[in-house]
């Protein structure tokens, strides 16, 4: 947004010309963060984009030229599309699971009146985040493996003859990712739900609506921005996850991050890996744009971009 658009009307002159021609002194304060953003985000992404359309590294090699080869390679092999679909499918399943489990918890956190109760719930949500992703994933591996707690218990009670394939499965990956990313969903939803006026629900029930209907028609629609924001976060994190799909999937579920690592670490094909990285980035960007559109529609004509 421009400075004029954000400035209160009383501060602008009648002919709408700005009083000062130079930038606001406060604007200089964003310079360090802008430089940081350029150095650690714009530059690496630009280099990645460049590497994805070059035949080699121009710093060290002669005769490097532009080529769409890496993108053609991706598009021409159905396996790559399969990998893309698995990545998106795991992202969608994780987002749905995190939403279904996280919403009731976030609602409870927002509506609990006791400060201690709220603090305890907040600690419960945040505590797992204090442990590393690798540790949490290994914990799930110990629980879900063929000789793990779940299978061993079920077999001891004679409920199953063979271990259930909990680990090395898509279910295992989704369980692991949901556990890791659910705090992002809960915290985002909690922020939105706690700002919804409780009296709106009370008014609906006073007018005869069943509490469930009051929730369905009042609270839920008002919490849509939180659902969208939380889902966007969890989805973006899930499709770019590396450790959990690697350890929980038993290498039978190839996702884009795994394929990228494979290309860099074992095939040493930086160009193709860069192209895969750009594809992953484009998916995430498409999501953000879509999210803003949906939010814009839900919020009327207000400019949200």
């Amino acid at each position: 947004m421009s400075e004029a658009a954000t400035a209160p009307a009383a501060l602008t002159s009648d002919d709408a010309a700005p009083r000062r021609t130079g930038p606001n002194a406060l604007a200089w304060l964003i310079l360090p963060i802008a430089l940081l953003f350029a150095l650690f985000f714009v530059l690496p992404i630009s280099l990645m984009l460049l590497m994805s359309v070059l035949t080699g590294n121009p710093m060290f090699e002669q005769g490097v030229r532009f080529t769409p080869e890496n993108y053609i390679r991706f598009a021409s092999d159905s396996y790559n599309w399969e990998v893309l679909w698995i990545t998106i499918r795991i992202g969608l399943s994780t987002t749905l699971a995190a939403l279904l489990l996280g919403y009731p918890l976030a609602h409870l956190m927002a509506r609990v009146h006791s400060r201690t109760g709220h603090a305890l719930l907040l600690i419960a949500v945040l505590a797992p985040m204090l442990t590393g992703i690798v540790v949490r994933t290994f914990a799930w591996m110990a629980i879900l493996s063929d000789t793990g707690v779940v299978n061993a218990t079920l077999m001891r009670f004679g409920l199953i003859d063979r271990p259930l394939p909990l680990l090395n499965s898509e279910t295992g990956i989704v369980i692991g990712l949901t556990h890791i990313y659910i705090p992002y969903m809960v915290l985002t939803l909690n922020g939105v739900i706690s700002r919804i006026d409780e009296r709106l629900e009370q008014a609906a029930t006073n007018l005869g609506a069943h509490p469930l209907r009051a929730f369905w028609e009042v609270t839920l629609p008002l919490s849509v921005p939180g659902i969208l924001a939380g889902s966007l976060l969890v989805f973006a994190l899930s499709i770019s996850a590396y450790v959990t799909p690697l350890l929980m999937g038993g290498f039978q579920f190839m996702t884009l991050p795994l394929l990228i690592y494979q290309q860099i670490s074992a095939s040493f094909n930086i160009g193709f890996a860069a192209a895969l990285g750009i594809i992953l980035l484009v998916i995430s960007l498409a999501l953000v744009i879509g999210y803003n559109r949906v939010l814009g529609l839900l919020s009327g004509d207000r400019d949200l971009t």
């Binding site: 092999d77 396996y79 290498f251 579920f253 095939s267």
Partner: peptide, 15 residues
């Protein structure tokens, strides 16, 4: 032959 082998074995061992 690694790229061709990789793509083939990735397909063989996918779930």
């Amino acid at each position: 032959n690694k790229d061709a082998i990789d793509m083939r074995v990735n397909r063989i061992f996918r779930a």
